[in-house]
Amino acid sequence: MLVVRQAGPADIDALMELAYLSGRGFTSLPEDRGVLSERLLLSQASFAGDVLPRQAWFVLMLENTETGQVDGLAAVKGGVGIQRPHFSFRVVTMEQYSSATETRFDHKALVLVNECGDCSEVGTLFLRPGKRQSGAGSLLARSRYLLIGTERDRFCDTVMAELRGWFDDADNSPFWDGIASKFYRLPFEDADRMITSTDGQFIRDLAPRHPIYLELVNADARDVIGAVHRHGVTAKRMLEKEGFRHSGLVDIFDGGPTMTAPRDSIRTLARARMLPWRVGDVEDAELALLSTTAIQGFRATRAPARIGADHVLVSSATLALLGFNDGALVQVSA
């Protein structure tokens, strides 16, 4: 069976393997053992409640309990833009009118902004190739919302998600090549690495301070603004199903879209309930998303369950997978 569980320092080898598999442009999963080790320590402290809510970074692992293999990961940040600004480009329309010629032009432009300081973030959704079927991706993605649902007040009223931008068949980013690289003048890999391994001062120093008129940008770069990487199409659809919508913001390096949703309107959260569990026959029951009800020791799975008005019926195997050994509530979402 598949279970989503909290990550800790012992997961570093599995996390490094997934980082290598994730490919170019997966900014939140760098191939850097030192950075990832620090992140796992932060995750451990976050689950233990030793970190301020807005500084928490929860890493979740999708584990196959039959093989012990970690097949994917996801993450939730309590807040963004806490220790440094979270820069994005906003796509805006700039109107220009000449009374002398009675001519009006609407220009599309990119404007550097820092607008995400009041958001929590779901991200780093990655599944091992060949493991993206049978609902594994949905379980992993939706478990992030159930984590938020355990203690909603620890998270912001708005939740954001950044999707990896478009890369061509040669694994190059037209947005980086045609726009961003003109300002940073670094190889993409170096800039990508510096996002997670430095304080981001280079962004403040080098980012454009004036609007970038898109008429002046080559078509290859212009056409991929807000486009999603081919491996991120399914993730985008899952976000849309949960109620996320385009915010008008794009990533400053690869042009990938930022999507947002009100926390309590997220479909999985809106349908989630805390109910007492009972053990019973669920052989023909519908599958449901189930989780523990606290951040510390968080676990989630998808299993047959009968959801009633005042309780949920589950199997003893499901309870064991979630780590229950006595009477307690379970969080459930259809």
Results as ranks from 00 to 15, higher is better:
N64E: 14
A109H: 03
D281S: 13
M94H: 06
S291A: 15
S247E: 08
L29D: 00
L42W: 02
R185T: 13
G49H: 07
L289P: 07
P304I: 14
L146C: 05
M1D: 14
E102H: 01
A14D: 12
V80W: 04
D106G: 07
T150G: 11
A334K: 05
A109F: 00
E17Q: 01
D32S: 14
F87K: 13
G25C: 02
F202L: 15
G226V: 01
R5F: 05
V51D: 04
V35H: 06
P53R: 03
C156R: 13
T103D: 01
R185I: 12
M160L: 13
R278T: 10
D13P: 04
P211S: 08
G78I: 14
V122W: 00
K131H: 15
G255S: 10
A303L: 11
P208R: 00
S28C: 07
S333M: 07
R152P: 00
L319I: 11
E115H: 13
M259K: 06
S43D: 08
A294K: 11
V59M: 14
A100F: 03
R33C: 01
W176H: 06
I82N: 06
T301A: 14
L319R: 12
A161C: 13
M238T: 11
D251M: 04
A288K: 09
N325D: 12
L287I: 12
Q201V: 15
P257S: 08
D254G: 00
P208H: 01
V4K: 09
A14P: 04
P30C: 02
A180I: 13
A303S: 15
R152I: 03
G327C: 04
A227M: 02
Q83L: 04
V91A: 03
G165Q: 04
L42S: 05
T65S: 15
A219M: 11
R128G: 03
A303V: 14
F202K: 12
F188W: 03
R152A: 06
K236A: 09
G178Q: 15
V332R: 05
R230C: 03
D157K: 11
T93S: 05
L321E: 08
F253H: 03
D284Q: 12
Q201S: 15
N325Q: 10
R302F: 10
Y184T: 02
L214A: 09
A261R: 13
L29S: 04
L21H: 00
E189M: 00
D326V: 06
V312L: 00
Q69W: 11
Y213H: 05
A320G: 15
G308R: 04
M238R: 15
L313M: 10
N172S: 05
A300E: 11
P304H: 11
G81M: 13
R222C: 01
F324T: 09
R302G: 12
C119E: 08
S143M: 05
H210A: 09
A309Y: 03
A285V: 14
V332M: 06
R278G: 02
E215P: 02
S43L: 08
A219H: 12
R245T: 15
T101N: 05
L216Q: 10
L125P: 03
L52N: 04
L321H: 07
D264H: 13
G232T: 04
T103K: 08
F105T: 12
L140D: 09
W57K: 01
D118G: 02
A305W: 10
R209D: 08
V217W: 04
A270C: 05
G72I: 06
L290F: 10
F26N: 00
R204Y: 15
R306H: 02
E31L: 04
